[in-house]
Structure formats: structure tokens, C-alpha cells
Amino acid sequence: MSVLIFVDQSEGHIKKASFEALTYGVKVAEQLGTTAEALVLGSVSDDLASLGKYGVKKVHQVNNASLNQLDAQVYAKVIAEAATQSGANVVVFSHNQTGKAVAARVAVRLKAGLVAGACALPDTGNGFVVRKTVFSGKAFANVSITSAVKVISLNPNSYTTIASEGTAEVNQLSIAVDTPKVKVTAVNKVSGEVPLTEAEIVVSGGRGLKGPENWGILLDLAKELGAATACSRPVGDAHWRPHHEHVGQTGVQVAPNLYIAIGISGAIQHLAGVNRSKVIVVINKDPEAPFFKAADYGIVGDAFEVVPKLTEEIKKLKAK
């Protein structure tokens, strides 16, 4: 019996969401009175032994070049085999793009019940019940997993990473890797941009900004805060911003520490995508904008005046 945590990497670097999954998985293991081990696929340039600082004693690696690109079918077979070899009865993923592709397949291979989009530690007092977000963040469901092996994928930004001292033993696993059937022919990454779902701070704009040419003030603010940028659905639909920035019920769901909404009225579908944010700031000139009801802080005012001032004030704060 043990907990296996899948550690996701991209271009040799471990993703932030995986540190959350590690912290979470270690806590699950503590709760079950067992140990937690990590699994990394492909070649990694980061120091794997240092993952010990999240509490795992052992990091397994399957270092095969075929695993440097994601083919969910190939990944799932390797992960399920590693879980079986290490005797894992709980497998933890991050519910990020990789987790969404792979966790469900692993669950089928292990004939394990899956809670996808978990947001809290399991309640193991009576059975095994995991809380997850449902209705796009408008509510939670407590889901009981009844199978012997359990798979959990953890919503990004829903569990705080805890790092202390520690070194893990790195163990090379030899598991046969199938030839991928999915061939990646091109990767287009927007360099220097903070990925939206991993961002601590998100600055988001709506129709109140009147046109794509006015996005400069928002980008300046985002840059000053080290924030990712997002937008409302009408803005994405009008192609003012790339559609992967669309946040809401039918777009991306985010849960940053701070969400700053500029010129967004706050339709219920938009709120569903952001209401797990820890702090919400709304800047809108309409005092009746429904977003104010969901906000922690608000300014009723003209974005074109308020936002540049806000950027200046943040600059001042950082200079202190």
C-alpha cells in the first residue's frame, strides 16, 4: 500500500501544479499511514532528488525519449504499470492538461474510481470521500470512491505547496514503453507568458475596454504584477484576445490568489470560471455590475483612469 504521485514535466522542467500534487499526495499518505512516492516520465533537467523537500522519499523515473512528448495511451500504460509495481492504492495527478489526458486512462487500466478535479484532502474516516468542484465551480460534490485502487486528479491552485528540507532517492524504473501513435509535429509556446491555470495573479479584461487597441493598460498592469492575462467570453469571441484567454464556464476555469477584473460585468457564466479565486478585485464604471457582488474589493470608476494609476501604485509598492 502506498500513494503514487505523477509528476508532470514540460521540456525537462517540473510543472508548478506537480508540486501541489506532491504536497497533496504526501498528506494523503500520512492520512492513510503509508508512504508516498513520485513518478516522472521522460528526461528531466531539474534535480529529481530535491523533490524530497515535498515529503516523498522515493522518485521513480522512466527515462525514455518516447515519453518526452505526450501520448496519453503510452503514458497511461507506463503509469499504471509503475503503480502496480510500487503497490500503490492511490494515484494522484494534477488536473492540468496532462492530467486531463492521462488520469482517466490510468483509472480504467487500474479499474480505479476517479475523482477528477479534487479540491480537498479525502475524508478517510468512513470510506474514502473526496471533494471536487462541480457546476464549473458553483458548488462542490463529495464523491465516494468504492474501488480498491483510487485515482485523484487535483485542481491546480487548490492546494498550497509546502516545501521543507529533504532529499529523495531517485530510482530508475525499467518499464517497456510502446511506440507512440500520436506524433507531435509542432509546439507553439508563447514564451515569457505566465500560463493562465498556473498563475498566482490573473488580470482580466472585458468589453468595458472597448477594443483590442486599449489592452495596453491591462498588459502593463499584468507585467508589473507578474500576472497572466485573461478575458471575458465576448472579448474572445470578437477576437480582441486569443481564445485560450477566455475565462468562464465554457472557457478556462482559474483559481488564482488574486483575480482582477477590468470592465467585466460579471455574467453568471464568467463568475463560474473565477469564483474559486482567493481574492477578487473588480474595476467597473457601472456600480450595478453584478461582479461587485462576487468581489472582495472594488472600484467604481473608469478603467482608463484607474488601471494606469493602479500600475503606478504597484510600482511604488515594489520600490519600497
Binding site: L70, Q97, V182, K183, T185, V187, V194, P195, T197
Partner: peptide
Amino acid sequence: IEGGEEIAE
């Protein structure tokens, strides 16, 4: 994919 897109066959 995180922070971008990938083309696959």
C-alpha cells in the same frame, strides 16, 4: 498545452 498549443497527427 500549458502556455500554448501543440499540433499532433
